[in-house]
Design a protein around this nucleic acid. Structure first.
Lengths: 195, 195, 195, 195
DNA sequence: TATGAATGAGCGTTCATTCAT
DNA sequence: GATGAATGAACGCTCATTCAT
């Protein structure tokens, strides 16, 4: 438990530091200080600086997946499911803004790791959208004339870019929930099958 | 003229190197080698490494804006305009894939510069979408119940995330143009005012 | 203690390297090698290269001041005090020739630091002479028709230039102590009040 | 003539720049800009950066020697000669303050040139004092119990340190001429042979 | 001669990582 | 396990010098 605690503490510290400075501008000593451990201690829990980022991704997106999946469990209407997803995805900005920033910014950098690391968890996360839309298509609710993988990306892209807008703006016209609902509404209007 | 040439050559080299390695993993000597100039020569044209990235952004997005604006000039239908924008935005992936990668990845990093640099050109680029949607609203074509700034971001996010998908994938279900048209179609379905 | 040791070790190494090459020709790696530490270690003890020189000045002149002040403690005759000062000042050439060289050469460079660093310790050192002469004047031993600050500088200049002569020369007509006594004698003859 | 002119112009510019920044902090391009020539032009007149400093020394001290020697020509009394020398040496601070600064600061750095350059002209300059004192000794005016080379250095050191004081101070108790006279008076009192 | 763009060796400094305690 | 002092490879940037024009 001790070990798990310290691992957590370092990840939390890393989220804080990466959010503020970005991965490359962040120093191991910054993270160590924020985690209130010695620099060397970090290397008892992680192989290297990149490993912190990878672990952070896997664990935090894993959590997200769990939460979203849990919230979707009792829902049957794919349209409602898309709404839940949107509320959760944007909700992260309020619940854990720093994590949202880190995931948004660093997740993109396919070349952040010069080795060929692929973020499997992120793919899983996107697949939640994929499954929902597929389900809707099967129920005859959603259009089938647009590529499914593309729709998945469109929805995610819309949500994520809006999330970034929210983070960057000082003032906001709408609440984060309202934003999520509008995006979902627009998307549903777009993908709904019409007579 | 000589001077402008070398400036260009260095920017081109930087696009190549940043696309491959990312800004932080890129070395000045990598760029110099790619541009076939000496390391020191780079500093005759740019103040520092960050300045290369900033210049790259401003110039290349400036070019994009010019091209898109030019292509939109003769079009009157806002729906057609959105299509043109999509074709151009995604078209960049084919025309200049490396530039597309750099703009996508590095443009996000609000904290890449620890000073408070704001990418004015990028805002201008997004405003093209804003203006089109606004025009459509004024003509009674588009919904007005969704926040305009949000719609702008939704469209851009959808396009950009799809662009990223395209870049990352080895094989593709559709052509880049087809992808653009599908995204536009979906978005138009979503934002179209209905009786 | 370990820490203080290494600080000392680096200062000693810097004295050695600065004496041989001068501040600007000296390389951090030269000092590191002479101190038998890694280059980076130096930056655990000093902010930058200039800081090494500043610390060196402050500490070593501080030591000098302590030694001279200690030696003057029991003396009452200002004339004897001037002699003691001369013996100490020139004595440094024998005791720690490299330090003498560094202090002599680099101390002058008011523009060595492009920022406005003022060597407070050096002023303190000169003030020892000032106080002695002033005391002699009060006792009616020394002339009062020559500006006191000027006299201070004359004595110091004479001693220091002689010190430089000694360092530069391969062979010497007199011992360093004899030199000090002659300078003192000459100065005393010059400043003594006559009937 | 053209050539000599440009040579002069560069030397003058170097005096200006070295005085302000010091030899090592000075850039060739600073000197070129001050001389209103191109960087490359400097290398048509000087072998390298060190060569500028060496030439500057030789020429300017050569000028000094000429001037002082000229002024001493008609004087017979060695005491008067020492006074003339002092007035000239300190006079430089007023006539050409920047040159005075450069000569004072950079002349010391025996290790400024990592090769073994010896400043012959400076030795000549000091020998003027040597000759005067020797003459005074031969005329029975000056003490012979103090080493002649030492006396030379004492006088020079006193003058030069006073010159530095003058340069560094914002306000002055006395005129530069008065200062010179006081130093000379003190020195003469010190070296005068007494019954 | 004169220019100044181009060169590239060289150095101060940083910081991820190690390891003796 | 935990520490943090020490390491040293690595890199951005500078600037004396060169050379094509």
């Amino acid at each position: 438990m001790r070990t798990a605690d310290k691992h957590r503490k370092i990840i939390q510290a890393a989220i804080h530091v990466f959010a503020k400075k970005g991965f490359f501008n962040a120093r191991i000593s910054d993270i160590a200080k924020a985690a209130k451990v010695a620099d060397g201690t970090i290397y008892l829990y992680f192989n290297n600086k990149y490993d912190i980022l990878i672990s952070l991704f896997e664990e935090e997106i894993g959590n997200l997946i769990e939460q979203v999946t849990g919230a979707l469990q009792t829902i049957t209407d794919p349209r409602k499911k898309l709404e839940i997803f949107a509320l959760h995805h944007l909700g992260l900005v309020e619940e854990n803004r720093e994590l949202a920033e880190v995931l948004q910014v660093e997740i993109r950098q396919s070349n952040i790791f010069q080795n060929g690391y692929r973020n499997q968890k992120f793919a899983e996360y996107l697949d939640i959208i994929f499954a929902i839309i597929q389900e809707g298509q099967e129920q005859g609710l959603f259009r089938t004339d647009v590529n499914l993988n593309l729709m998945k990306r469109i929805y995610f892209g819309a949500l994520d870019e809006s999330s970034r807008l929210w983070i960057q703006s000082a003032e906001h016209d709408m609440s984060i929930a309202e934003t999520a609902l509008q995006i979902c509404d627009l998307f549903l209007s777009g993908i709904t099958r019409r007579a």
